[in-house]
Amino acid sequence: MKRIYTHSDVLHCEVIDSVAEEFINMRSIKTGDFDNVAKCKYEVPDYWTIGEVYERLIEDVQPNENVDSIIETLFKVYNSWVSDSIGRFNTDFYYQNRDYIKECFLTNKQIA
């Protein structure tokens, strides 16, 4: 992850599928059966839109500009219940206000 983040200024110009495939092969990541798209009843947001939601959340909750801190925050966000909620495209969670998503993450609960 640190390598991806450190070289993001160059990698963002590459085709995302080829960059992803390269890192999947490099880390020997096995294919899983996760498929939140097949269950979606509505238009599925593209990965740029969802990536923006994650980017804003990581920026909003990470304590400082240190690369290691950013990577640690990234893992915390992606391993949280908030990430699961963002990935449920049949709900409205992923397009909520960024402050709302941040507060849900920080309080570890969905705010009514």
Rank of each mutant, 00 (worst) to 15 (best):
11 L>M: 02
51 G>A: 04
71 I>P: 00
50 I>L: 10
6 T>N: 11
49 T>G: 01
72 E>H: 14
89 F>H: 09
72 E>M: 12
18 S>I: 03
9 D>P: 01
55 E>I: 00
102 K>V: 14
46 D>L: 00
21 E>T: 14
51 G>S: 08
45 P>E: 06
96 Q>V: 08
7 H>P: 01
39 K>R: 11
17 D>G: 04
3 R>C: 01
50 I>K: 00
54 Y>V: 04
38 A>H: 04
33 D>F: 10
23 F>R: 00
22 E>N: 04
89 F>E: 00
112 A>F: 07
94 Y>H: 15
102 K>P: 03
87 G>E: 12
72 E>C: 13
18 S>T: 10
3 R>N: 11
93 F>K: 08
85 S>P: 03
92 D>W: 09
38 A>D: 03
102 K>M: 13
103 E>A: 12
100 Y>P: 06
15 V>D: 02
62 Q>G: 14
58 I>D: 13
1 M>Q: 11
84 D>I: 06
81 W>Y: 12
30 K>R: 02
12 H>T: 01
60 D>A: 14
48 W>M: 05
40 C>K: 11
95 Y>F: 15
21 E>D: 11
24 I>G: 01
55 E>K: 12
71 I>F: 03
88 R>K: 15
81 W>N: 12
3 R>T: 03
112 A>K: 10
70 I>L: 05
77 V>T: 10
11 L>C: 10
52 E>A: 12
98 R>N: 11
76 K>I: 01
77 V>N: 01
81 W>C: 06
67 V>R: 05
8 S>I: 09
22 E>P: 00
44 V>T: 12
77 V>R: 04
101 I>K: 04
64 N>Q: 02
66 N>C: 09
19 V>I: 12
58 I>K: 00
22 E>G: 01
90 N>D: 11
12 H>E: 13
5 Y>L: 15
74 L>M: 14
92 D>S: 15
103 E>N: 10
2 K>E: 13
21 E>Q: 12
60 D>G: 04
94 Y>M: 03
32 G>C: 03
25 N>Q: 11
87 G>H: 07
20 A>M: 07
82 V>T: 11
112 A>Y: 07
93 F>S: 13
10 V>K: 04
111 I>D: 03
85 S>M: 15
111 I>C: 02
41 K>I: 02
58 I>V: 14
87 G>L: 15
80 S>I: 07
46 D>S: 00
46 D>P: 00
71 I>C: 10
102 K>H: 08
3 R>E: 13
35 D>P: 01
60 D>L: 15
74 L>G: 02
20 A>S: 06
99 D>M: 13
26 M>F: 08
98 R>V: 09
36 N>T: 03
111 I>A: 01
47 Y>D: 07
111 I>N: 06
25 N>F: 01
99 D>W: 14
92 D>E: 14
89 F>Q: 05
29 I>C: 03
54 Y>K: 02
109 K>W: 02
70 I>G: 02
108 N>V: 10
17 D>I: 00
89 F>G: 06
2 K>I: 09
95 Y>A: 02
8 S>M: 09
91 T>Y: 10
10 V>C: 01
4 I>N: 05
106 L>S: 13
93 F>P: 05
79 N>T: 10
12 H>D: 10
102 K>F: 09
75 F>H: 12
33 D>A: 04
33 D>P: 00
105 F>K: 08
